[in-house]
Write a protein that binds this DNA or RNA. Structure first.
Lengths: 345, 345
DNA sequence: CCTCCGGATGGGATCGATCCCAGAAAGAAG
DNA sequence: CTTCTTTCTGGGATCGATCCCATCCGGAGG
């Protein structure tokens, strides 16, 4: 059997209460006693039983992380950052992968609650907002990342997709491009909607309009990127720049461009959304809009820790009936070598 | 306050014992009682408190997953698969990211034990095998994936790196290539060692020897891939094929090849290790050795569940003083269009 | 009619830590 | 010397489910 606090207390010649105080860093204890108990504890190889602690104190030191998948670079970056920050603060992370399925999401929320998590960070589907709000009301911390339903009472950390797309498009316009292709995501997704809006807005600000023949929108996968690129090239010989706003599609677009013999940036300027390491190693290095996935995760974790630390704060938010404050992490245009002025011919 | 089993029992007019039996699917109960209690429970919105359950029954329904990072495709694939399988079996996953740092690994093992995990799957550094064996002896399930120390008492699920590299190299030799470049990982890593061994073996079987000028070995990152590719091209004008055995390096190699104007497969045949979606969408689609990351995760989870289900089985293994059985997931050569016979000139 | 058996149920103890309250020890103030 | 703080410690209750043991009941068998 494992060594329990009782054993340590007995060995150290103090009561369980005192031993508990010594090891949990309570101020209500003489420092010599603390040292003595600690010494005994790790001589015996004592290991705190967090399960027992969680039952009594209602603090599990576990947080949930709910997201669609780990394939998408933004998601696994967030997962890594959240895990690291959590570990550094003494929390463990329960990982839940929903595949963007609301039913799975609901089941995970229920299960996380059953495990007594202190809080959770979610890339929500938006279909279980009521349940998430209920958890919040129970005192479980909740933070939305990337997506947030309007009725969510929890704070949200969002990317600046619209601004990012606006910056990218403006940059291309500044260089003198007139016919800028757009490959984006479905309008049912938040990112699809906002990035297209940013593209449109930048064009309108220069007195231009969106040309339908320059726009391709589709699912988040590389096959679509490949096909969309082919269609755009075929349809628009005059296209001098391309804005890839659908991350997954990029994996299909780049090889297709290479295969078509398109020289970047001489024949075509290119900007991609969401930075990933190897885009910097491409030939030529690709200009990107960095959506700040790491910062999204970091900020989300900060907000969650805030809620957890001041217990009841999250519950209070709900009672006030207010919807959660939204935070935006700025998008950043990282200029590399894939953009140039359009060539005369 | 949340609804407890006591509340449900009271509402249903039975004792806590009976209520517990009804909801946990014990056979020692009349089926009408079971139905009645269940009905009451979900009418009241009862949620089992797994923390309390874990304390008493020593079954937390949580498993740990310890790995280096989530950037590497094999790792996040394993993480996804393990999470999915775990969820389907009623388990939750605690995610731990070690960065391959033995100190962090040790800390995580300790913490996972403190949280009472039923078992854990680890991509180990090999420096905490004693501790992992100790956990196994305590009855916590342990399974190694990808890497396994010789002294580990836990079963291991390993990739067939040597065979995979052998198959790739043999394939190139079969096509008639004589000078095959190799870009691999550090020999301190298991995969680096075995893949090189496979390359060497295939050459030797054909009466050839490794030419040092054709070999580049270095860290697992894209910068190295880029530099290594440049060096190989400069040094070996006669190189007609290239085997990329370092996954991370691939991200640097491909763009460098494109930049150098190397036509694949006419000028150079190429095989990469570890399949990732977009290699299929490359122009031309790249022939790869699939190390079966998904299967690795799946098999590891199966072995873990086996250990957990028959309690004490893992402990018994240790007592016998035997080292854990090793399982191999076969590597698979997926032929696409990046390999051809060397051109005459 | 009584005993025995097996299925079904109830009550108390238990897991291991933390919380709460009472109280001891030591020092300060009168 | 007494009284009152202040500081520290101990013991019991507690968190919520599960386990173990005792009991109860109806029916079968003697």
């Amino acid at each position: 059997m494992a060594i329990t606090l009782k054993d340590v207390a007995a060995a150290a010649g103090v009561s369980r209460s005192t031993a508990s105080r010594a090891l949990s860093g309570s101020p209500l204890i003489a420092s010599e006693t603390r040292v003595a108990v600690k010494e005994v504890a790790d001589r015996m190889g004592y290991r705190l039983n967090r399960v027992a602690g969680a039952l009594r104190s209602k603090q599990s030191h576990v947080v949930g992380l709910v997201l669609n998948n780990l394939i998408n670079a933004s998601f696994h970056t967030i997962a890594e950052v959240v895990q690291r920050r959590a570990a550094a603060e003494g929390y463990q992370v329960m990982l839940c992968i929903t595949d963007a399925d609301p039913r799975r999401e609901e089941s995970f929320l229920r299960t996380l609650a059953a495990h007594g998590v202190d809080g959770l960070i979610m890339v929500g589907t938006g279909r279980n907002t009521a349940m998430a709000n209920a958890l919040l009301a129970e005192g479980i911390g909740v933070v939305n990342v990337i997506r947030a339903a309007a009725e969510s009472a929890a704070p949200s950390v969002l990317a600046s997709d619209r601004e990012g797309a606006h910056a990218a498009t403006s940059h291309l316009l500044d260089l003198g491009h007139e016919r800028i292709g757009f490959i984006g995501g479905l309008m049912s997704a938040n990112s699809g909607l906002e990035r297209f809006a940013g593209y449109e807005q930048a064009l309108r600000e220069r007195g231009r309009q969106v040309e339908d023949s320059l726009v391709e929108r589709g699912p988040f996968d590389s096959a679509f990127g490949s096909e969309a690129t082919e269609r755009l090239l075929r349809r628009n010989p005059g296209m001098t720049a391309l804005f890839a706003a659908n991350h997954e599609a990029v994996f299909g677009m780049l090889p297709t461009l290479v295969g078509a013999g398109v020289v970047i940036p001489r024949q075509l300027s290119l900007i991609c959304y969401e930075d990933i390491p190897w885009l910097r190693w491409w030939q030529p290095p690709i200009t990107v809009v960095d959506n700040g996935a790491g910062e999204l995760g970091d900020l989300a974790m900060n907000l969650l820790l805030q809620q957890i630390e001041r217990t009841g704060r999250s519950a209070a938010l709900v009672q006030a009936g207010r919807t959660g404050r939204a935070y935006r992490v700025g998008a950043q245009l990282i200029q590399r070598s894939s953009c140039a002025r359009p060539s005369a011919g």
